[in-house]
């Protein structure tokens, strides 16, 4: 059973090379950005010496952590963006391409159920793609830290103190992992929807996937003068209940005039329990389940002849 799923998911990775190519491209862009910045910064000798001196001797651990975390978060968001686009295209293609090239007849001539096939595609979208993206993020962080360390050292700074001594790798990575999977689960009804579209549409899956998401809010707005559908669909991304409520008074240490140490931790801003106990999370999972069931049903009962 598990063996079947592994084989099916491996099949997805063979077919959809973009699952690897996208993180690779983003990693290259981030690294290229770092290199460009460092080269550009290298032109300002005096200011640079001052900054390195300051970062090494004046700034505390908290500030250094905050700056490194800022860089981490920035590059991770780029991955998230790429991941979103990748997942949409993947899900829309997953059950469409096999019908278009007729390979569905080959896949269905093997002892695999339609449910196993469709579920393997869902798992690829919400488990595997985030995992590959996570690996991309980790590698990007490490590569960029190494590049920056070498550069700092060449400018006379102590990379051990400035970077490796302060970098909150585990905190950042754990937080990234939580956010990646929270987003995958939170947005899973969209994955279900795109898989369903991919299973039934005869042509133009991208158009068929987005047209209802645009037209239904318009129709609702015109006839019912309300915006529930638009709110539920287009507003969902921003409402993900994984971030802890930030108490601004506790955020800043008035006495020392700086951000509190514990506030620099990304994990401290996340609240997985709140996410998992939110009814909206579970509603999304149910909607995803229904749409995936519909996709299985279409693949099973549709007759291509």
């Amino acid at each position: 059973m598990i063996g079947h799923y592994i084989a099916l998911i491996r099949r997805e990775l063979w077919e959809h090379r973009s699952i690897f190519v996208t993180p690779l491209v983003i990693a290259s862009i981030v690294t290229l950005g770092t290199l460009t910045t460092l080269m550009f910064a290298g032109e300002f000798h005096q200011q640079l010496d001052l900054v390195i001196f300051g970062a090494q001797n004046v700034a505390g651990d908290t500030e250094r952590r905050a700056i490194l975390t800022g860089f981490f978060v920035g590059s991770s968001w780029l991955f998230l963006l790429g991941l979103g686009v990748l997942t949409i295209f993947y899900a829309l293609d997953a059950l469409y391409a096999e019908r278009k090239d007729k390979s569905i007849l080959f896949w269905r001539s093997l002892p695999v159920t339609d449910a196993e096939t469709v579920v393997s595609k869902l798992l690829t979208a919400i488990l595997v793609i985030p995992a590959v993206a996570f690996a991309g993020i980790v590698v990007t962080h490490i590569v960029n830290l190494i590049v920056t360390s070498l550069w700092v050292s060449s400018k006379g700074g102590d990379a051990g103190v400035m970077i490796w001594g302060s970098v909150p790798l585990i905190d950042n990575w754990l937080a990234t992992l939580v956010v990646l999977y929270a987003i995958a689960i939170w947005m899973s009804p969209f994955v279900g929807w795109f898989l369903f579209v991919s299973a039934f549409t005869k042509r133009a899956p991208l158009l068929m996937g987005f047209l209802p998401l645009v037209l239904i809010p318009m129709i609702e707005g015109i006839f019912l003068r309300s915006g529930h559908f638009a709110e539920a669909v287009w507003g969902r991304g921003a409402k993900i209940p994984v971030f802890a409520d930030i108490d601004l008074e506790r955020f800043f240490d008035e006495d020392r005039l700086q951000v509190r140490d514990e506030m620099v931790s990304l994990l401290s801003h996340l609240d997985p329990v709140k996410f998992l106990t939110s009814p909206d999370t579970w509603l999304g999972i149910i909607v995803c389940g229904l749409l995936v069931t519909a996709a299985i049903y279409v693949r099973r009962y549709r007759d291509e002849s």
């Binding site: 063996g3 079947h4 592994i6 084989a7 099916l8 491996r10 099949r11 063979w14 077919e15 096999e98 090239d101 007729k102 390979s103 569905i104 007849l105 080959f106 001539s109 093997l110 002892p111 695999v112």
Partner: peptide, 24 residues
């Protein structure tokens, strides 16, 4: 079952096709 000559997916490698059928 062989439906038609065109049903093997175009993107698959010969070795991958064997890997997949072997696993399934």
């Amino acid at each position: 079952f062989i439906a038609d000559v065109a049903v093997l997916p175009r993107w698959i490698k010969v070795s991958q096709a064997l890997d997949f059928v072997e696993a399934i």
